[in-house]
Design a binder for these strands. Structure first.
Lengths: 113, 113
DNA sequence: TTTTATACCTAAGTTACTTATGTATGTAAG
DNA sequence: CTTACATACATAAGTAACTTAGGTATAAAA
């Protein structure tokens, strides 16, 4: 993948899912976590990530907590209650999409008419 | 789904896959086949389909054969040799994407740290 | 005769990315 | 010691791939 445009539309869902799992994360950490979980297959670009985080925050799905670690700034994000609700819905939608795509790809790979 | 933008980037792969399965299809038939295979979950819009077909043809992946059935025009598309090759690659890429996404969604749904 | 289905088409608008840049600190390498 | 790489944030401009909205035309159903 890496440069495949296939994941378009799923970035915010990925972010919400990671935050639901990890509690709180900062931007750079998210990019590294995604790389790790996907074995470098999916590289979240900073130019995509930060605007996405800002939008999720503006929509009231995320809260920010700024910390200074090693004299470097970190902006930790965590889900609001609304964000938790939204993450559930978005995850369900993404999972439905994935199985829909599976259904599209399977026929004739097997033995159907 | 229906209106979800999640499938962005996968339309041409879907077209190639269907043609690999069915041999030849016309545009309208493709929209109906996708609806049927996905139980109305995924609705290919004509505004997306026809430009995609034209592009695939321009790229030398599809051949056209025009037929008149019931006094109505049909443009049947089928894979060229190049199109067959491309469909294999695109399908592999899409399948890799799907399992990558699965990998992203699984952790913490289970019992991992 | 109006709607629905079949069958094609394109232009304009939108969205969500990529690419390219920029700032700033800390660490490793040469 | 200075250059490159990693960490950590950010935005602006460009692009791709859709959606929306319109158009033409025939046939069947209401």
């Amino acid at each position: 993948m890496s440069n495949s445009k296939l994941y378009k539309g799923s970035l915010s869902t990925i972010i919400l899912k990671l935050l639901a799992d990890e509690g709180k994360m900062y931007g750079y950490e998210i990019t590294q976590k995604v790389k790790q979980l996907t074995q470098d297959e999916l590289q979240i670009k900073e130019g995509a990530l930060y605007p996405a985080l800002h939008k999720l925050e503006a929509d009231g799905l995320l809260d920010i907590e700024v910390k200074k670690v090693d004299n470097r700034l970190r902006k930790y994000y965590k889900l609001t209650e609304k964000g938790t609700q939204e993450s559930i819905g978005k995850l369900a939608e993404l999972e439905r999409y994935l199985s829909t795509m599976q259904a599209l790809l399977l026929p004739k790979t097997k033995l159907s008419s």
